[in-house]
């Protein structure tokens, strides 16, 4: 990972609760060529029909930071990930990734809505794991993991194969490489999906309720894999989750959302330990009761 020098120390000092502080001027920027944060939402508005999901949302994520989005359903958390993945387009405002506008592109002095080519350029850095895994049923596990690196990054077959083996080993499925995805359990499928996303060597990994569709006994295996990735890499992570224990373990910062706005943000100790906002308290109360 290019920005490892920059971010590894931060991962260790995160307990101090600093990440939410003002964007540092990125001292050893490495590949991170913009001056500002890795991800920046600037007054982003998203509507579905009359339903305003995000109202002028502002927030930043630093390179290497792991951020968890929590909040009641319908509060716009998943929409944020989908906007970053270019699966949705903004109705207002700008999303910046690494100093480049994601939803827009520069045309002289002006910003115009991005075309497909620009979006492909910017989202090279971004990977996503979905709630429903979304493995390709027309391919073996191996091809699920290797096709995109081969065709999109131009990696050789041999290299992609070797990387697939390593990644599957890491997620504990080394023996399943030639299986058909439909033969795997949900938890195994999700671990393959994680390996598939990592095979693209993303700088940013988006995790959209990755355990919500799993049977309870399969959740732990998937979360362990993600904990391991958090421990051993410096990938920037944005996770939408209802697993509060996981959020507490891995994130540097937790954002509490309600009605398309950030209600409260802070290090996990503070959000889970002494939430300041009433809405945060009642949400956590409800989640922990049911969980």
């Amino acid at each position: 990972m290019p920005q490892s020098d920059d971010t590894a120390p931060r991962a260790e000092t995160e307990a101090a609760g600093a990440p939410a502080a003002a964007p540092e001027p990125a001292p050893a920027a490495g590949a991170h060529d913009g001056d500002g944060p890795l991800i920046r939402f600037e007054r982003v508005v998203k509507r579905f029909g009359d339903n305003v999901v995000l109202r002028e949302l502002d927030f930043n994520v630093e390179a290497g930071e792991r951020v968890t989005l929590i909040g009641p359903s319908g509060s716009g958390k998943t929409t944020i990930l989908r906007l970053l993945m270019t699966l949705e387009t903004v109705n207002g405002g700008v999303i910046w990734v690494n100093g480049d506008p994601l939803s827009h592109m520069r045309k002289g002095e002006r910003l115009v809505p991005a075309n497909e080519r620009h979006q492909r350029q910017v989202r090279r850095k971004i990977g996503m794991v979905f709630q429903q895994f979304n493995l390709f049923p027309n391919m073996s596990v191996r091809r699920n993991i290797t096709e995109a690196p081969v065709h999109s990054l131009g990696v050789s077959r041999e290299e992609a194969d070797q990387r697939a083996e390593e990644l599957l080993e890491m997620v504990g499925l080394g023996d399943k490489i030639d299986e058909h995805p439909t033969r795997l359990s949900g938890g195994q499928q999700q671990r393959v999906a994680i390996a598939r996303a990592l095979a693209m060597r993303p700088e940013i990994l988006l995790l959209d309720e990755v355990t919500s569709a799993l049977d309870p006994e399969l959740v732990a295996g998937v979360l362990d894999v993600l904990r391991e990735i958090a421990r051993t890499t410096d990938i920037t992570m944005l996770a939408v989750t209802h697993e509060m224990g996981f959020a507490r373990d891995v994130s540097h910062r937790v954002l509490m959302f309600d009605e398309g706005q950030i209600v409260e943000e802070g290090p996990p100790e503070q959000i889970f330990g002494e939430p300041r906002e009433e809405r945060t308290r009642s949400f956590l109360h409800a989640v922990l009761e049911s969980g």
């Binding site: 993945m85 971004i126 990977g127």
Partner: peptide, 9 residues
């Protein structure tokens, strides 16, 4: 959506 996330053309 998965193909978008894998940046396929």
């Amino acid at each position: 959506e998965a193909t978008v996330a894998l940046n396929l053309s």
